[in-house]
């Protein structure tokens, strides 16, 4: 497979996953805030912070939602992610099943109207849900109609790495919101909303069988190796994909280093600032996995900012 094609597939995977997770994240945040006492506006600047915009203290809900869903200048907004994924798919039409292209093209064409609808709280849930559903349909089409060859694996690897990164961001905002919540907002409701946003609530109940409290939830989202949105699951799958690719030594090493951090999660949560520091470290490691994949398989390394990755997270942490 051509190096350039592998690279475009990888980015297409990332961009699709990014759009889905941003939709999940905005939905979850909206749900959390609906549970908070009337008159209290919180969390929106936390949301922009975890999405890579550190200097947005005091932004309003309308501004944040616009920024994350519709902003043409935000390379991570849903409409831009989908447009980039579609542009990549356009350069990949000879390797993708035709139905995949049509489904993605269609989603891209509908996105601006859907995301405009989502500015309105009463229509937000349905509109964002539609993005998530369309993305899942794409994942299904890919899984069921495309050969599981190297092309498929590069696409999947991009998606898994992006998902690991986004899960870490989602945990980040949840812990921030839960910690700073004033009186009325119980921590439990926050974590339930987050688990639901990640479609993780039922699976958590079934496999953990403990009441919802921060430590087991974070530990589930970090270190479960069977739940597909958990970071460990993502990294272990990247590892087995890499094992089948030519010359995987460098990216394999980076992936294993990232995975090793995950076991520190329970311990870190006993420390004051433990979790934010750990999340920073995890994201740093994920970045190194990305760089190693680039250097091993793609043409010229693409600067992260240009490719639409939010930069440093806890800049002031």
């Amino acid at each position: 497979m051509l190096a350039r094609v592998a690279e475009n597939l990888y980015w297409m995977g990332r961009q699709l996953e990014r759009a889905e997770n941003t939709a999940r994240l905005v939905n979850a945040t909206t749900q959390v805030l609906l549970d908070s006492p009337a008159g209290i506006e919180l969390g929106w600047d936390e949301l922009t912070r975890v999405m890579g915009f550190p200097d947005t203290v005091g932004v309003t809900e309308a501004e944040v939602v616009h920024l994350l869903l519709l902003d043409q200048d935000n390379p991570g907004s849903i409409v831009v992610s989908l447009r980039q994924a579609r542009e990549n798919a356009r350069s990949l039409r000879e390797v993708l099943p035709r139905e995949v292209w049509e489904q993605l093209n269609n989603l891209h064409l509908r996105a601006p109207a859907l995301m405009t609808a989502a500015l309105d709280r009463s229509r937000r849930h349905a509109a964002l849900r539609e993005v998530v559903d369309a993305r899942l349909m794409l994942a299904g089409l890919l899984n069921e109609t495309m050969s599981h060859d190297a092309a498929f694996q590069f696409l999947r690897m991009g998606a898994l790495l992006e998902r690991a990164d986004m899960t870490s961001r989602i945990v980040d905002i949840s812990s921030a919101v839960a910690c700073t919540a004033p009186g009325g907002l119980g921590m439990e409701t926050t974590w339930i909303s987050i688990l639901k946003a990640l479609s993780a609530f039922q699976m958590y109940r079934r496999h953990k069988n403990v009441r919802i409290s921060p430590k087991p939830v974070v530990s589930f989202l970090f270190s479960d190796s069977r739940f597909p949105r958990a970071i460990r699951y993502c990294l272990e799958n990247i590892e087995s994909i890499l094992a089948e690719l030519p010359d995987p030594a460098d990216p394999l090493r980076a992936t294993r280093q990232a995975a090793r951090l995950l076991s520190k999660v329970e311990h870190s949560m006993e420390l004051d600032d433990g979790l934010p520091v750990l999340i920073d470290e995890v994201q740093q490691r994920l970045c190194e996995v990305h760089n190693a994949i680039h250097e091993s398989y793609f043409s010229k390394p693409k600067p992260m900012a240009e490719a639409g990755m939010p930069t440093q997270l806890h800049a002031q942490a």
Partner: peptide, 11 residues
């Protein structure tokens, strides 16, 4: 891209 796809050729 269409022709490459239909022929299974590299683009």
């Amino acid at each position: 891209s269409y022709l490459a796809q239909q022929m299974g050729a590299y683009l």
